[in-house]
Amino acid sequence: MKKKLGSLLLAGTLCVSLLFSACTGGGATPATDPGTSGGGDTPAVAAAGAIKVGVVNNPPSESGYREANVKDMEAVFSADNGYELKTFYSLKNDEQLQAAQGFITEGVDYLLVSAAETTGWDEVLKNAQEAGVKVYLFDRMIDVDESLYEAAVVSDMSAEGDLAVDWLLSQNLPEYNVIHIQGAMGSDAQIGRTGALDAQFASGKMNKVVQQTATWDEAEAKKIVESVINSGDSFNVIYAENDGMAKGAVAALDEHGITHGVGKDVIVMGFDCNKWALRELLAQNWNYDGQCSPFQAQVISDLIQGKTTASSKKIINEEKGFDATTITQADIDTYGLGE
């Protein structure tokens, strides 16, 4: 008997709580309407016509890439260019989601997102759509329906690897004996930059002397190359998946009296295009540096202002690769990251 009463009570409270939640849910929907209309009012108040842009990104401290990315966003979406920019930086997806929701409630016109994780964005982006906020994704894709965003301006990591490997093939070496130093396994950059080279190893056009991950660690890269040199295996190409690891590899070459660079014994290839790395290219100590472009802001700005229209939802940002024989100081100033 008592048990029955208890379960009845439980069911009762459940019903009541459901009712209440339904109420608050019902209450919430109309509540957003004045919110959005309020958001609509504010641009009218700021009659100067500044376009309000909310950017949710990863923090600049994440990498040199991100630092350049953040700076680029701030430069393009400046007050001078007719924008009112709000930014939020975090490596945590839930914090990013909260911030995005915050921007929507504040009534931004455009929401730009580079998400920490690919999942969990459905609801926030639906809210944005309901509130009339247009969403652009940059740098990273999100696992949501295409209808929820205007366009995604992203890098194609495998194109970047292809570009580099095509350049290497164009060198027409009689033999390709490659030391391949990989980044942190499983990262987008590693997968993209490894893929193209793996295809060459598989087809037999290039020989894999060693393929090791140094997890972006310069010192580890040096150890890997040193172990190859000590073992006496011959090689003529170093393909390092970022500049730091290429520098580590070169340090090992220098210590063992192996020449590198344009017209020397070993071809050195790096990625990221840090300014200091491009200077090594200019000095012809290295041969090639590839870049996954961090500059998406202008593309998005052009789309917003209607200067260009997106032919498809996914816009591949153009990738760059520099050759030591053709690079100029101007290239370093324009495209180099960091100092």
Partner: peptide, 28 residues
Amino acid sequence: PSFFRITVELNNDGNKVLAGNLISIINA
């Protein structure tokens, strides 16, 4: 056994230096 081979090499700065796995180990 060649793991223990130590050689003297001319590095890119023009110095004669010791090289080999053992040197790598104590250096690293």
